[in-house]
Design a protein around this nucleic acid. Sequence first.
RNA 1: GCGCCUGUAGCUCAGUGGAUCAGAGCACCGGACUUCGGAUCCGGGUGUCGGGGGUUCGAAUCCCUCCAGGCGCGCCA
Length: 570
Amino acid sequence: MIQEQLRQLIHEALTKMSSDNGSDVSAPLTATKIAGDFPRSIEIETPNNPEHGDFSTNIALVLSGLLDAPPRQLAERIVANIPPNDIIERVEVAGPGFINFYLLPLWLHKVLEQCLTKPDRYGCSDYGTGQKVQVEFVSANPVGPIHIGNARGGPFGDALANLLATIGYEVQREYYVNDGPENTQLKIFGASVQARYLQELGIETEFPADGYQADYVVDLAQRIVKQDGDAHADVPADESGALHFFSLVEEWMVEGLHEDCAAMGIEFDRWFRETELYEQDQVRQQVNGLLQSGTAYEKDDAVWLRAAEFGDEEDRVLIRRSGSPTYIASDLAYAVDKFIKREFDKVIYVWGPDHAGYVARLQAALAAIGVKKDQSEFIIYQTVRFLEGGEPLALSKRQGNIITIREIIDDIGRDATRFFFLMRSVDAHLDFDLDLARQQSQENPVYYVQYAHARICSIQREAAKRGFEVLPLQQVDLSLLTHPDELTLLRKIADYPQLIQQAALDRAPHRLPHFAGELAQTFHQFYSTCRVLDPDQPALSQARLKLVQGTQMVLQNLLGLLGITAPEQM
RNA sequence: GCGCCUGUAGCUCAGUGGAUCAGAGCACCGGACUUCGGAUCCGGGUGUCGGGGGUUCGAAUCCCUCCAGGCGCGCCA
């Protein structure tokens, strides 16, 4: 990256300054230290105002405090010490002490060359190479389809995983299926299926007060009747009966979750069943281990984790008075599997807002088993409000009126669905207005981006149709690209690697749709002023075709990261 | 009561220590085409960046406080 080269030049300037004689004593010493560390608060960035150069750094402003020197004066000294090089045209000190770099136009053409030489790798880096990261997301209970209330983590986790892979991490996508025998939700769900089943058989039954009332539960009951008739009519209406009925539908439920995720374009590397932990007696074993090490203790006929000693508000129950393990007990066993058995360097948990209060608890539990603090990350996405006719809809699975993610996808399409979910920061509440989404589906931002790609493909088709011979890169003179709109587009392409890196590090996939929109806009502007296929200017046409192709590559990369198709025509 | 998230243009939201940083999309109004796709382009913004205080050379951005909204706070998951 060009920024790296500039960084190196500044670094050399600082080192040179610190060895200069004739200046004061303390400043050079500190400059040496800073040259070594090069603090993160020092930025090399693209100025918003093009008049401020191609790149700009705030280094003199940041260092002036540390070195006790006026920023502008410091900036001048740094500039004077920058070694000779072949990328900078000129450097200026501006404003309160910014250093602005004006590069030789050649650098933009070099960037395009890089992009076209290794299009798949453009924007990639080796930042995370050698590190295993797991992103665990969705993980909705197997008690119903994925719906608009818990779907947001899907596209987010998927795009985040893509981003992390782009900067070199070895990434694994995991779905945790809470099908453990102690899951209270499952029991309520199983009891609901049982009640509907008996009703299907015409047997008068009281529906559980807190049961799942949605229609799909009736469908499941009908499916059981169709398959087994009244074979389960005599199953007792107690906990064991509820679990029996859950076991009857479990595979259907998990299958449905697979299909829902597939509909969203998400493929998990692993579906981890909570039952695996119980089958291998991992939960008990882990709790016993904690008891032995004194990290857990017995009180009031229950087993408690000393969570308060690890940062939680209070100690937490691991084994209930009834003798059955709590969710946190199996989550601990699950964490042991992730961090210790499978040796992930980092696990990113993507959770819904209802789990916000659980973060501190699991963090404490992780600390209790010796997982380092920076090995786990918790991303809580905020609520999605689903509006129809201006009214927010209730999303509870317990009630009948759920809206599944597949209904949305059938309605407005996968691309638009993913784009809508991804274009907002997960920290922000999301208003998903169905009326608007339908109505706007033709004016949707995703179409704007896809249209740019389709248009590029169209230009290439046209070139082929006219018998335009596309020359290999080495024979094309990219330096002919000098029009302001060409340079703006080149600059946008050059910005891409930095965007990817930062979006990945900030866990901020929502920057991608924004950037994609900007890139598309820049391209459309270029298109309206610069004729690509111009018979009168064959050399320029060749160069413009390369520019168009570079844009296409970046668009494809971006859309790929978002999990959205890049159509050749629309 | 405590914790997390949010408060920016009519609406939905970016920007979270930099300079023309008061922004985008939508909506609304007005323009552009005998030429590579008009799902396009160009022009049109009087906003207490929720209020107040503080830190800083510099604050929408960091800290404190108040106000408003959302979501959590179980031997449920």
